[in-house]
Design a protein around this nucleic acid. Structure first.
Lengths: 226, 226
DNA sequence: TATTGTTGTGAGAAATCTGTGAAGTTGTTA
DNA sequence: TAACAACTTCACAGATTTCTCACAACAATA
């Protein structure tokens, strides 16, 4: 996969840094802009593959910025909006936004949407997604999981967990790693929460012993015959 | 592997000394700083490859120190925080920290994280992992061990012991050394505990006489034909 | 060979970790 | 607001690992 450059636009530095960290972990290169004029300058100066654009910003807000960018460029734009912030999905997308994400979001959600947008806009050759693993079939577009032909309804956390496991199959993963990647760096709850989700995932995936316990460490996803 | 220089920053001398001992045993060169100003001076004076930075310090705390260092340098920084200490992962990492470790930690955990950070930041060429030794195959990602093609289930201590033996093969290792490296400096149990683990390891590794008794000293890991 | 100190080993106690049901929280939807 | 789903926490039983101990077996030394 070629190296993709994402521009993060947000007036809060903390938020920019956090997003950048998430993205760099996922293999993206990042630049930051704290306001509208910095944004325009960045776009002139560098090759940007995608823009993450916060809506609430002093001076020009995200919608205005989007409009001005669209006047001369088709760079994919994903809007960021804080939860509860009053905003109009329709408006954003009409202005040429390609998607939107509501804060707070998990690292997995962020990268998933970026990949989806890049694929959709054709900016990048289809990114191969894991699909069939043993008797589990994961449809990342539809966000559905099928086991032995039967669709299994997974909750958000279960789904992200399964995806992360599949991406790192045959690797022992600690609870800390799972929490950090799926819940985000700022999660401060109990480690044992992972156990509970493991329980339900195991149950939903049925027989197959996909998820092994690595005693004293955490868990590992293994495919029986591979 | 080139000689890497680690700066240990902590206001407690005991902690600094302990960490230094761990690191020197692992082949690092160390310097110490007990407060913020010493830290800045060290960075000016010496070539430092990585900083271990305690968060709780009188006067300037670790976060502030990190911020000031980041203002002019990209030296990798790993935060140290005592268990239970209220601290914010996100804050630390946003300020430019590369990782964090919660005290108390084992020597193995410490060096593993340092290596990971150095690899990630590109400070050092990937450090080769032990893999095949005689008829033993160690998969560090999956944390599995195979002997003659058969997977052998090892407990945590057994696994860490084997790894340590392999890293120091053909060297006579005292029980004290083993306890210090695998259990940590604060272990206060019986020396003979080692014997018991040696017993089970020998049994699980099967024929091959990998682990030799060095009478009056301790044990040694040897590979038959090498 | 007798003596002394060291190591091997089995058994069981102690410590630690995981699985799980149930209850509590939070957030969403109608 | 009530009903519901998702998520988290808790507590305890059960499983697994780790440690200790006692004694047998062994090596070194005189």
């Amino acid at each position: 996969m070629k190296n993709l450059h994402v521009l993060i636009v947000d007036d809060e530095e903390d938020m920019r840094d956090m997003v950048q960290m998430y993205l760099e972990n996922a293999g993206f290169t990042c630049s930051q802009a704290g306001n509208a004029s910095e944004t325009y300058q960045m776009i002139e100066d560098k090759h940007i593959d995608l823009i993450l654009l916060d809506i609430m910003m002093p001076e020009e807000d995200g919608f205005q910025v989007c409009e001005r960018i669209r006047a001369k460029s088709n760079i994919p734009i994903i809007f960021l909006s804080a939860k509860g912030e009053e905003w109009d999905k329709v408006k954003g997308l009409q202005l040429g936004g390609d998607d939107y994400i509501v804060k707070p979001f998990s690292p997995g959600e962020l990268t998933a949407r970026i990949h989806a947008v890049l694929r959709r806009t054709g900016s990048v050759e289809a990114i191969e997604q894991p699909n069939k693993i043993g008797r589990i079939f994961i449809n990342t577009k539809g966000r559905t999981v099928t086991v032995d032909g039967n669709q299994v309804p997974l909750t958000l956390k279960e789904y992200e967990m399964l995806l992360f496991f599949v991406k790192n199959k045959n690797q022992a993963l600690s609870r800390e790693q799972l929490l950090e990647k799926i819940w985000g760096l700022d999660y401060s709850g109990s480690l044992r929460t992972v156990d509970t989700h493991i329980k339900t995932l195991r149950m939903k995936l049925g027989a197959g012993d996909y998820i092994q316990t690595v005693w004293g460490i955490g868990y590992k996803f293994e495919v029986p015959n591979e």
